[in-house]
Structure formats: structure tokens, C-alpha cells
Design a protein around this nucleic acid. Sequence first.
DNA 1: TGAATGGTTAGCCATGCAGCTAACTAACAT
DNA 2: ATGTTAGTTAGCTGCATGGCTAACCATTCA
Lengths: 100, 100
Amino acid sequence: MANHSLDTLFATLGDPTRRAIIERLAHGPAAVKELAAPHDMALPSFLQHIKVMEAGGIIATRKEGRQRICWMEPNALIPLQGWLEWQRQAWEAQTLGPKN
Amino acid sequence: MANHSLDTLFATLGDPTRRAIIERLAHGPAAVKELAAPHDMALPSFLQHIKVMEAGGIIATRKEGRQRICWMEPNALIPLQGWLEWQRQAWEAQTLGPKN
DNA sequence: TGAATGGTTAGCCATGCAGCTAACTAACAT
DNA sequence: ATGTTAGTTAGCTGCATGGCTAACCATTCA
């Protein structure tokens, strides 16, 4: 299964910084500065993560005055759930065996 | 959340070759050669993926004669499901709002 | 015993990724 | 008008990753 969106999703979530951003945004939108605060990292490095996530369709952003507000793209994680569920089913079908 | 096992899982699944291996193994064990067949890639390159997955605890392997048999590590994907579920819940709690 | 099969090891190379600093722009505050 | 805040752009660096070939076991088959 050469699924480009899964490639992107998994790659994006492989970085703990980016997962932390998602975990934060699940509770509501936030500006870049606020998101960056807990991460001991220069702003440009951090911004790179934001860009990756926006490019991957996982978050969306908007400029508001001099801040950039970020929020979750609500359905972004659905392909992941789908793939996992699919795997789970294939696995169960196999462990139960074709005769059951 | 600096979760090492999630790091490894996501990173491992980010590669389409490795996802294909999982998809194949969900239907039952297989030897390296058989797993490698659909992937236009030199054996050593392919073996590298097998090693990564074994190191990450996603699959297990055993030597049997001159072949190496691989199979799924049944609970490997559970942390993923857990994280996704957690995210989904945080998201829903937020969209519904604290007052509902 | 000799050839073929399946895997393994070693070593190389190109690319991408995550981080950095320095320098700049755009909005607000005084 | 000047300073401060929040991003942004550009350009560099080091390391990890994914691929390759060549050469080498170890097992099985004839």
C-alpha cells in the first residue's frame, strides 16, 4: 500500500516535538509563541515543525496581527485510525483462522 | 509527551516498505525472501528494514534452516491506538466545550 | 563433493532532516 | 519616532536513513 498521506502522517508524528504540538492543539488553538514556549529550541527551528505540519494538512494557521494562530485540522488523524483498524482486523481474521 | 516507544513506532511505520511488510505479516508469518519479493530492492537493503522492525519490537524472527521466518509481535501497535484514542478524546472534550 | 539457495556483513554514497545563527519585516506600545 | 514583540528568511552544519555492491557464511540438493 503506497499511501502518500500515511507516509506524511507517520513521518510527521514521528517527531516528539510535533506530537507535543498536536497534544497541545487538541485543547484549542494557540499562537506560535505559546506553542514554542515549552520547547527548548530556537524559534526558526520550531517554525520549521509548524510548516511541516501545515504542509501535511495536520494543522492550519492564520495570521492575526503580528501573531500566527494555529489549530488542529479536525479530520487529519482519520487515515491513521483507518489503517490501524484495518491491520487489527486482518490480524484477528488470521489468528482466529479461516474456519471460524 | 516524550514517549520513546511512540517515536519508534511512528518512525518505523513512516516507511511504505515497512508498512507493506506489516500488512503482509498480519496475514501470517513468512520468510525474508518471500517478504522481499514484491519490493524492487537489493536483499541487504531489505534486510535493514527487517532489522529496524525487529529492534523496534514490531516483528519477531527466528532462524529455521537457511531461512529466517518473521511474524508480527501481536501487541506492537497498541500504543498507537492508545495515543490516537487519547487525542480523539481531548479533541472532543474541547469541541463540545467544558459546559456540556 | 560441488553447486545453488537464502541470508549476512562490511563498507560506500546521496539525500533529507533537525537544529543553529544572523539578519530582516511587520505590528503594536510608549 | 523609537523600541519591543512575534515571525520570517537565508544559509550553514552534523547526523541519521535508505539505498547500493561485493564478498562471505551456512544449509540444502544433486
